[in-house]
Amino acid sequence: MQVVVDNNGIKRYLVTLNINGDSYTRVIKANTLLVKFLREEIDLTGTKKGCELGDCGSCTVLMDGKPVNSCIVLAVEADGHEITTIEGVAQNNKLDRIQESFIENAAIQCGYCTPGMVLSAKALLTQNPHPTEQEVRTAIAGNLCRCTGYVNIVKAVLVAADEQ
């Protein structure tokens, strides 16, 4: 990783992240969190900050297909990796089946957990196309929702899985 030292002696790192299929190169400090990189460097604000401690899952993104809390991943750790954010789930304005199912099954209320939920569900269904209800609940257990009681979220994921 290339390092640039500024006038105050602070090191900055040249990183390249592949985000939603496109390559982004930035010079950042070592303590830059992935969530901050996405929201502030790349302006992808669909990734939400709910706790910044890895507790709530609002900032879930996929790193090489696996769900991670982007508030406890450093951007330098994501260097060279493939990141999928909520903005990368729909393709050419066509919603993913999971997204459609969230809409059809009234799985969205305030919407703040929705991006993270969709990505956790996406990771699950990619790896396990026909999960049981318990497997769905386990897959989203790290994503807190304060509105829905998860009832319609679990339903939406199961409906999307059934149709695959």
Binding site: T45, G46, T47, I86, Q99, I103, I108, G111, T114, P115
Partner: peptide, 8 residues
């Protein structure tokens, strides 16, 4: 508001 919320 479903579309806006589900797409980020």
């Amino acid at each position: 508001d479903a579309f806006e919320k589900v797409t980020g």
